[in-house]
Design a protein around this nucleic acid. Structure first.
Lengths: 144, 144
DNA sequence: ATTGACGTTTACGTAAACGTCAATGCTTGT
DNA sequence: ACAAGCATTGACGTTTACGTAAACGTCAAT
């Protein structure tokens, strides 16, 4: 585990371009130190980028991601600021729970579609026999 | 429950503009019937729009949403087409499960941040007493 | 007959999130 | 000394997902 990273190292590790990383800095989501112009990313910067990309996978716009990232750094501060942060945390939690419901609904739909799909393939196979059996596991876990 | 809907009815119901709905049609995500130029949306069209918006809340681009919507209509068809659909269903399932993991991780992070936040507010309150107690329930359910 | 309320198409504008050069700088091996 | 490789900052282009008019049709009510 390294102490610091170059911009291209992070780009390779996370599969994004250096242009994207610089863009995130431009939008004030990252603020690496410099060594004569060159950007030096600490492990905290790396973590921030990791969280940023998680937000992206959840479909959040960069401005939202920025405000969430700022929550991580809002450990201390004035009471007003803390209460404001607490309120935003609750809002974010609500959004996440709604997204979770959407995902569960989408997974249920996929199950239904897959069943229809598989059963129709079965009818096709019963007419025209002797095919290689495919790999169909319909996982039914609720949690995780 | 109505049989058909106008474009503005759907817009109001789902809180989107008619411009957006027409745009979705332009991108071939919807295809309502016409009555002398006017668009008439069936209940199936309404459901399609509902699914579309769910995809949007999950952060999917319209092109992805379109391909998912097409899965719903791919009940019958050739074997090749069914196998292709089955493959796409699995890919979509994988993405949903990864999104679910991201959400769980984000929820866990929010718990940590909230705890830090609340405890720091407590230290502030212990110095300057006599404040109204806030409403903090940290739900710990894993499923749903 | 006219006025709204609703609908239509066409066209241009815009914000977000980068991609793609171009011109330049540092620095490291030969 | 000099090229190779990685870095920098602009500047402009692109795609997505609509917003915002403009100009017009239609139908019901006054």
């Amino acid at each position: 585990m390294q102490e610091t990273y170059s911009i291209s190292e992070l780009g390779k590790e996370f599969g994004i371009t250096t242009r994207a990383i610089r863009f995130y800095e431009d939008k004030e989501l990252l603020s690496p130190t410099r060594q004569g112009g060159r950007r030096i990313y600490s492990r905290a910067d790396r973590t921030r980028l990791k969280l940023l990309l998680r937000g992206k996978r959840l479909g959040w716009p960069l401005e939202e991601i920025k405000s969430v990232l700022n929550m991580y750094d809002a450990g201390d501060g004035e009471l007003d600021q803390l209460q404001y942060t607490a309120k935003k945390i609750e809002q974010r939690r609500q959004q996440l729970l709604r997204q979770k419901q959407d995902i569960n609904a989408a997974l249920a739909d996929l199950d239904r579609i897959q069943n229809r799909c598989v059963s129709h393939m079965a009818t096709l196979n019963s007419c025209n026999d002797n095919h290689s059996s495919q790999n169909h596991q319909s996982q039914k876990e609720t949690s995780s």
